[in-house]
Design a protein around this nucleic acid. Sequence first.
DNA 1: TGTGAAATGCGTCTGTTTCTCATTTTCGCA
DNA 2: TGCGAAAATGAGAAACAGACGCATTTCACA
Lengths: 153, 153
Amino acid sequence: MSGTTRTFQEYLKANRLKLTSQRKLILDIFVSGSQLLTAEELFRQVTEIDPGISLSTVYRTFKHLQQAGLARCVHYGDGTTRYEPSEGHTSYLICEKCGRKIPILNPYLECLQQESARQEGFRMFRSQTTIFGLCHECLKEHLPNQKQSNRHH
Amino acid sequence: MSGTTRTFQEYLKANRLKLTSQRKLILDIFVSGSQLLTAEELFRQVTEIDPGISLSTVYRTFKHLQQAGLARCVHYGDGTTRYEPSEGHTSYLICEKCGRKIPILNPYLECLQQESARQEGFRMFRSQTTIFGLCHECLKEHLPNQKQSNRHH
DNA sequence: TGTGAAATGCGTCTGTTTCTCATTTTCGCA
DNA sequence: TGCGAAAATGAGAAACAGACGCATTTCACA
Ligand SMILES: [Mn+2]
Ligand SMILES: [Mn+2]
Ligand SMILES: [Zn+2]
Ligand SMILES: [Zn+2]
């Protein structure tokens, strides 16, 4: 039994919630799959295995996973909301041209955040740092294009 | 004429857009008011002065303000999207219970972010750090009352 | 002032998330 | 084991934020 499964079961028990087959399956697919799924996308993957599961249940389970600290959602600029397992990174570089999302590995960032919170008497649950800009690859294409886009419209 | 007004006019001119009375009013109220308004909330404030303005126009103007770099939107945990003037801080503590928003003043955070971007060959335009948790005041009320949740709707 | 481009208001439409409720499932306990 | 209360489910409706289409008005510029 994986760590996340145990965590989820503990959360359920602590809140007098029940472990259903649907919740098991949703958790399984969520933590094992690639990250940053739309609720709809996870729903599609889940129904491939159990076609009876409803989208409502996916949303409801997401809520619990979030409260259990196992999932977090990221709101994208395009309006979509994507969910990801909340182990791992919370800091990213996001390229505004190609959408590439690069995790930031600098551990000092988290330390400084903890420290900032502490200074205010604040209890930190989670943090999120997003740095917007242009990635290495897009920078190379961006600069030559600059002249053309100046004369636009 | 304020700096933001000038910036907005320059943006408009550069994009062959027009300065309408609606846009003037929306910008005015937005930059002068307290921060972190919902589109709906700004709409209400705006219609107190000019009842003819439509919600669509508020949304449309927000888009332009964002593109002009004068506004930014923050997605809250409760699902609402709030807009704020983008001058000043980009790092905040946000209390998930009372919604209080506390600017983080630590300059090392920005330095570290710049550094992280540089390491990836990334060109940073702007960054945003959000730390979710409980503020000092809510912590005092929270602990006795463990079973609190759902600031929803 | 006249003219074309752009913006507005208002209604409609879309996609996402939540809610309602009748039915089914879970789980602690006898 | 089987019971019963509590909780979860699926299906659909409802709520909600935003975006859109279009007829009409307003703006910018000459
Ligand atoms: Mn946004
Ligand atoms: Mn969220
Ligand atoms: Zn890129
Ligand atoms: Zn608070």
